[in-house]
Design a protein around this nucleic acid. Structure first.
Length: 230
DNA sequence: ACCCAGGGTCATA
DNA sequence: TATGACCATGGG
């Protein structure tokens, strides 16, 4: 019997590659603890700081902010540009990111903080985030999914690479198109989306995605999607 | 020395 | 709409 799923979702899990890949990754890598942060606001600034940047460099910046007691909206909004830029130096693009953090912190305070924002519908909040300078599709969805617990699937370069290589999506497709494909084929479940994106990143970090013939990649050699059981 | 990382903006055609 | 330049550190 096929499990009960959202009507929008393909009824049979066995024929749904998006489900199969998720189950495969989950069994292979186990439960992921994401997003590593102490509070909502830390998740949100982490999403900005990690833009095109290795997470290890972001961790140093956040640790720096915390040690100086500046890991909150009021502090970020009040700090001088130089001071903030210096503090987040390790995360790269520090001038851009200092500006983006300040703009975000100011907006965040003006809106009344996380509790006020959490009451807004997903699509509305997403639009408002996108209207901010320095927050694009992926950063907005990072915030929505991990800080606000809203079921908005995150599409990053890893997702594009892996799933285009599986022949499921167009690597150069528009963000909303790819996201829609995941939304169409999966239950609208925040936990599922959080785990799935985290698993994709875990997978990408452990396997070489630079070459198309990565023999150690379970999703390209052992995966039951590529080699279906008879 | 080179490549890339849990992207986004802006100018140009 | 679709490329390309730009932002910048740290680890492989």
């Amino acid at each position: 019997m096929a499990p009960m799923l959202n009507p929008n979702v393909h009824a049979n899990v066995v024929n749904n590659p998006y489900q199969i890949i998720y189950l495969y990754l989950r069994d292979y890598y186990g439960h992921q603890s994401w997003w590593p942060a102490e509070d909502q606001f830390e998740i949100m600034i982490g999403a900005i700081l990690t833009q095109n940047t290795a997470w290890t460099n972001v961790e140093k910046a956040i640790t720096n902010l915390k040690q100086n007691n500046r890991c909150d909206a009021e502090s970020l909004a009040a700090m001088k540009h130089q001071t903030l830029a210096k503090m987040i130096r390790s995360s790269g693009y520090y001038n851009q990111k200092a500006e983006r953090l300040r703009l975000f912190a100011e907006w965040y305070l003006k809106q009344g903080g996380a509790l006020a924002l959490a009451r807004r519908p997903l699509k509305m909040l997403r639009k408002e985030l996108l209207a901010l300078k320095g927050i694009g599709d992926e950063t907005a969805d990072d915030m929505l999914l991990y800080a606000f617990g809203q079921p908005s699937f995150v599409i990053d370069t890893y997702t594009r690479r892996i799933f285009s290589r599986m022949g499921l999506v167009n690597e150069k497709g528009r963000y909303e198109e790819l996201q829609q494909q995941f939304h169409d084929h999966l239950e609208s479940d925040t936990e599922l989306f959080q785990q799935y994106h985290a698993l994709i990143v875990s997978h990408a970090k452990r396997h070489c995605l630079k070459t198309p013939d990565c023999i150690h990649c379970p999703l390209t050699t052992d995966c039951i999607f590529y080699e279906p059981q008879p």
